[in-house]
Design a protein around this nucleic acid. Structure first.
Lengths: 194, 194
DNA sequence: GCATAAATTCAACGCATGATGAGTTACGCC
DNA sequence: GGCGTAACTCATCATGCGTTGAATTTATGC
């Protein structure tokens, strides 16, 4: 309700504008996808002038890249999955995957990547490169599994998050993580056994 | 290279403009998604003035609905899947599904629906409603399978076409239908057995 | 304290878009 | 053969977009 009596010039104290913009960008890219998330809307959500976005990040595509940079480091997540009995790797993978998607701080970013992967070539490249070079290369080096099987496993998981978080289709959107693990783990396990 | 010496007024002979527009819309919506496929670009691809698009279809969203109307009638496809031994329903479903996606006349339309489902609420509703009311309701009436299992099966297939036709991720994009059937059919079968 | 740099807004440009309304030509019926 | 209707284009509008450059205020290094 504060009247928008903003005036030009630097604000006193240290500023959080840069981070505010990043956070707003993640939310809006996640909700609307690359094209429909306008710089003006992101700036408004961050309580900031659109020109400031350019001042910090340059063109829109750079903002997108900065906001969507993969929030998870493969080096920390892969050991969680690969360690443990090989016969239970499907369950560990599905459980870990769903746990990351449950984090409300990470999810908008994930959804944004999925949403934008179908629309902008930048988004598609981002997702494709991450899956192939970051994940598959490492997993394939440890487990000896054909690439097509890895694709099938990844496709199952991507399909699930599309249903659950993008389309919000019932009953999958409301199912518990445990239900999904029970349902999906055998599928993933089979792909990774071959 | 024909000089664009178009003049106003009705053309002699019978016109294919309406169908040309629909065809161009299917291609462009499929390639670019709802937002990036502009009415002007669709009109240009159809060799027609943008205003003619409005003349035939009204607002853009109506054009989209007309172009993306599901090209497959569930009444004709479901018997193909449901008839035959129950133990092979997974294979029949996957094979039929992939065969429809292989049709180069149908694919742009399918891709358009997937692409737009992640971006526009209209697209999401279109896909959601078709899957739930057209497919699931009918299938669930015949096979007695929990809704969550149907979701999981559909998610697997949607994930596959995202990898294969939207992201064009290798090796799935280049795999043969037969390879995919062998890989996916047991998964689908398991979901539909429960 | 003063100069430079950083943060911030304002005003504006140029562009593409979806949409509208009026005008023009052909078809089909009586 | 005249008339309503359908097909078709043109010019135009308002809007929202990404982007830019200048102006203003604060922080910081010397």
């Amino acid at each position: 309700m504060t009247a928008p009596a903003r005036r030009p010039g630097r604000r006193p104290g240290r500023s959080s504008s840069r981070d505010d913009i990043l956070a707003a960008a993640r939310v809006l890219f996640g909700e609307r996808g690359y094209d429909k998330a306008s710089i003006r809307a992101i700036a408004a959500a961050a309580g900031v002038d659109p020109a400031l976005v350019h001042h910090f990040f340059g063109a829109k595509e750079e903002l997108f890249a900065a906001a969507m940079e993969f929030p998870v480091d493969p080096e920390t997540i892969l050991p969680l999955i690969l360690a443990g009995p090989r016969a239970e790797i499907g369950e560990r993978l599905v459980r870990t995957f769903l746990r990351f998607w449950s984090d409300p701080r990470l999810r908008p970013q994930f959804v944004g990547i999925i949403r934008s992967a179908t629309t902008s070539e930048t988004g598609a490249t981002l997702l494709r490169d991450f899956i192939t070079s970051q994940l598959f290369a490492r997993v394939a080096a440890v487990l000896e599994v054909p690439g097509l099987n890895l694709n099938a496993a990844a496709a199952q998981l991507v399909g699930v998050v599309m249903f659950r978080y993008v389309l919000e289709m019932e009953p999958m959107a409301s199912a518990s993580d445990d239900e999904l693990v029970a349902l999906l783990a055998p599928t993933i396990q089979r792909y990774l056994d071959a």
